[in-house]
Amino acid sequence: MNIGEVVFGGAVTLAGTLVVQLFVIPAVQARTRGQERWERDILELAAVIEEEFPRSLDT
């Protein structure tokens, strides 16, 4: 086992971990937050429609 190969493997692993932590994870979290906001907005819209639409029809 060559020490240079071990160091190189460790460096590649470190670089891969940094890429995942700096780019992949934040992108996935942003997409998840956007989807959660969209779902919350749709539920709020449905609640408003259920409350306001019958009132509009009555007037």
Rank of each mutant, 00 (worst) to 15 (best):
L45P: 02
Q21S: 12
R33Y: 04
L57Y: 06
G10V: 07
I3P: 01
R33N: 07
E36A: 12
T13M: 13
L45D: 09
G9T: 05
G16V: 07
V20Y: 08
R31N: 08
F53P: 00
R31F: 07
V7H: 03
W38D: 11
G16F: 06
L57P: 00
A47S: 13
V7L: 15
P26L: 04
I3S: 07
F23N: 05
D41T: 03
A15W: 10
R31C: 01
E51S: 03
Q35D: 13
I49E: 07
T13Y: 11
E36H: 04
L43W: 03
V28L: 15
V48E: 11
E39H: 05
V24P: 01
E44R: 06
L18T: 08
G4H: 13
P26S: 01
E44A: 11
R33E: 14
Q21L: 15
V6Y: 02
S56D: 10
V24L: 13
G4A: 15
T59R: 11
I3H: 09
L14P: 00
A27L: 07
A11R: 13
E39S: 06
R37N: 08
G16K: 08
V6M: 14
R33H: 07
V7R: 08
L45R: 05
L22T: 04
A27F: 08
F53A: 12
A11I: 11
Q35L: 14
V19C: 10
R31L: 09
W38P: 01
V12F: 06
L22P: 00
N2R: 15
P54K: 09
E39M: 08
V24W: 01
A30E: 10
